[in-house]
Nucleic acid binder design. Sequence first.
DNA 1: AATGAATGAGCCTTCATTCAT
DNA 2: CATGAATGAAGGCTCATTCAT
Lengths: 194, 194, 194, 194
Amino acid sequence: MPKTANSSQSKRDEIIEIASRLFYEQGFGATGIKQIIDEAGVAKGTFYTHFSSKDELGLIWLKARHAAWNSWFEESLGDTQGAEMVLKSFDFLEEWLKQSDFRGCAFINSMAEIPCTDNLMRKQVTVHKRGLLDRFGELVAEHYKQLGKSKKLAAENAKIIYLLFEGALVESQTFHELWPIHCARKKVAELLAS
Amino acid sequence: MPKTANSSQSKRDEIIEIASRLFYEQGFGATGIKQIIDEAGVAKGTFYTHFSSKDELGLIWLKARHAAWNSWFEESLGDTQGAEMVLKSFDFLEEWLKQSDFRGCAFINSMAEIPCTDNLMRKQVTVHKRGLLDRFGELVAEHYKQLGKSKKLAAENAKIIYLLFEGALVESQTFHELWPIHCARKKVAELLAS
Amino acid sequence: MPKTANSSQSKRDEIIEIASRLFYEQGFGATGIKQIIDEAGVAKGTFYTHFSSKDELGLIWLKARHAAWNSWFEESLGDTQGAEMVLKSFDFLEEWLKQSDFRGCAFINSMAEIPCTDNLMRKQVTVHKRGLLDRFGELVAEHYKQLGKSKKLAAENAKIIYLLFEGALVESQTFHELWPIHCARKKVAELLAS
Amino acid sequence: MPKTANSSQSKRDEIIEIASRLFYEQGFGATGIKQIIDEAGVAKGTFYTHFSSKDELGLIWLKARHAAWNSWFEESLGDTQGAEMVLKSFDFLEEWLKQSDFRGCAFINSMAEIPCTDNLMRKQVTVHKRGLLDRFGELVAEHYKQLGKSKKLAAENAKIIYLLFEGALVESQTFHELWPIHCARKKVAELLAS
DNA sequence: AATGAATGAGCCTTCATTCAT
DNA sequence: CATGAATGAAGGCTCATTCAT
C-alpha cells in the first residue's frame, strides 16, 4: 500500500498509521495495544482518548484501508479502457504481491479471524468486497456494451472475473507464487475477447 | 465436516475433537487452552501430558483436518467420472456452505492468522492446498484425455478450476451466499465442455 | 539490614521493599510474583507496569542491596582508623548475624541459585564482592602505610582478611553460631599487629 | 567429582546419579523431576516407586555427596603427613575448580536455597560442614602434636584454616579465579610453620 | 517394579481497559 | 489532550504428586 506522509500528523493519525501497518502485517488479534502505543511513542491513555476500544480502531483501519486500497486499485488501472482496464487489475495484483510486506488481503484475513457475523469489522469486509464486485461489474459492463453484448452476460462474467481475482489473490498468498495471477489473467483475457 | 462418534474415546482424542471444533469455529488464536480443557472436562496438566504445546495441537488439528476434508471431498465425488466428477466438487462446496457451522476453509483461515511462513501450521496449509490443486489436475487430466485434448490445456484449465473453486469458497464465506458457488460451477461446466 | 520508613511510598517502591525482604528471606527463585503482589496489595498488572520482568526486579534488588549494604558497612566502621577500622567490620558481622532475619549474604545466596555466569544478577554478585575486596584493600593499605610496611604485604593481607570475612560470613550462616566471626576477628587482629 | 561406573545399575541408582549431576549443576530448586526422569529414561511413576518425594531424593543426594566428597578429599590428601597434608587440601580445591562443571560447594549452594533451618537437607549441610571442620581439627592437631605445640593453639588454627578453606571455596566460585585458593594456601603454610 | 495418564495449584507474563492527575 | 499507574482476567505452560493398570 502507498505510504502516507509522515510530517505534522496528529497523534491520532499517527496511531492509525502505525496500527494499520501492524494489523496488516501481524493480524488484528495478534497485535496488542502496547505494541501500537510503543511504536507510536504515546501513552496508554492517549490511545483511549482517541479511540474507545481496539475494535473501534480495527474498524477505522478497515474503513481507511477500504478507501486507500480502492484508490490504489483505481490508480493502477490508469487511463486505460475496456478489456485492458480489467486486465490491469491483475497487473496490480502482481505489483502488490511483489511488495516485501505482502500478506494477502487485509479484509479476507480479518474475516478469517472474526467468526461473529454481526461484528462491525466483519461487516466492513463485506462492504469492501461488495464494492470490488460491483466495480468489476461496471468495468465489464462498459466493455461489453462497446462490444454490443448483453448485460446479462456482462454481469455473469463480472462475477467470474471477480472470483478469479479473489482466487488469484488468496492463492498467491498461499503459495507466494505468481502463477495464480498469471493464470487468472490469461483466462480473463480470453473471457473478455470472446 | 462429518462428526465422529463420541463414545469410548481417550482423553487425548476427546481434546483433539473438541479443539478441532473450537479452532475451526473461533479461530486458532482466539481459542484458549482453558476453554478446550473446560469443555473436555480435563485438568490443565492433562493437556500437556498429551501435547507439548498449543502449536502442536494446532498442527495435529490441521493434519487431521487435511485427511478428513480430503476423505469428505472424495466421498462427495461419488462414483462419477469426467466432467461430472469435477462439477461434483462444487456441489460439495454448496453442501458444506449449508452446514450450520460453516466458517470457510480452516486452512485459509489459519493462514490469515499466521504471518510467519516457516511456521509448521502455515506449511500444512500449503501442503493441503497443493494437494487439492494436484487433485484437480488429475481430475481434469483424466477428463481431457477422454476428449483427446492436450495435456497442456488440461493443466491450464485445472489451475483455473482450482482458482474458481477457491474463489467460490472464500466468497461464499464472505457473503454467506450461494451465487459464488453456482457461478463458478457454471463456468467450470462450460470450460470442460469446450 | 536497616528498615526504611513505610509511609507515603510509591507502589513501585513498596513492591521493591517487599520483594527485597522476600528475596532475601526465601531466596529469589522460591519467591513468586504472586506472593509479592499479595503482600504489596497490588494487582498483577501493576507489577508489570513498573518492572519488565521478575529478573529485572531481582537485579534492582541486588543493586539496591549493594548500595544499602555498603552504606551499612561503612556506617558501622564509624570514625575509627587503621586496624580498629578493619576489626569493626567483624563487629558489624556479629551485629548482622544477631538480627532475627539473618540469612547470610544475599549475593552469595543468589550466586548459589544462578548457575549461568552471563546472568545480570550473577554479574552484580561479582561487582559487589569485588567492591568489598577493594574496600578491604584500601583499609589495609592505609593501616600498613602508617606502619611503614610494604604495599605488597598490605595487598596480600587484604585478600586474606577478605577471605576470612567471607568465610566467617558463610559459616556463621551454616552453623548460626558466633565462633566463625570471633575466630576470624582474632586472627585478623594478630595479622594487623604484626 | 569422580564419576561412577555406568553399567548394570538399578533404575534407582541411575536416577540418583543423574539427579545428583543436575542438582549440582543447576541447583536443587531449578531442577524439575521431569528433567530427571527424561534424562534417566524412566516414567514418572518409577520415580515415586523409589523415592517418596523430591525432597527425599535431595537428601539422598546430599548424603551420597557427603560420602563421595569426603572420599575424594581424603584421596587427594594422599599418603602425606603433617603440614603437607593440610596444604594438599588446597591443591584439591584447585583441582576441583579446574573441572569444567565446577559450581562451588553443593552444600553451601543448597543452604543458600533452603532458608528453613529444620529442613533435613539443610541439616545435612551442617553435618557435612561440621565433619570437614572436625577433619581439619584432626589434621592440625596431629601436626601441632609433632611440633609440641598446645592443643588449644591447634584448635584455634584449625578453625582459621577451615574458614580460609571455605572462604577460598566460595570466592573461587564467585570470581572463578585461582587467587583465593593460592592466597589462602600461602597463609595456611605460614600458619603451620610458625 | 514399572508405566504414563491425570491432577490442579502454581509459574511468569500479556491483555484490553479505566481513571486520577 | 496527554499521561502512565492500576486493574484483574486470561494467556500458555510447568510443578510435584497420585493412582489405576
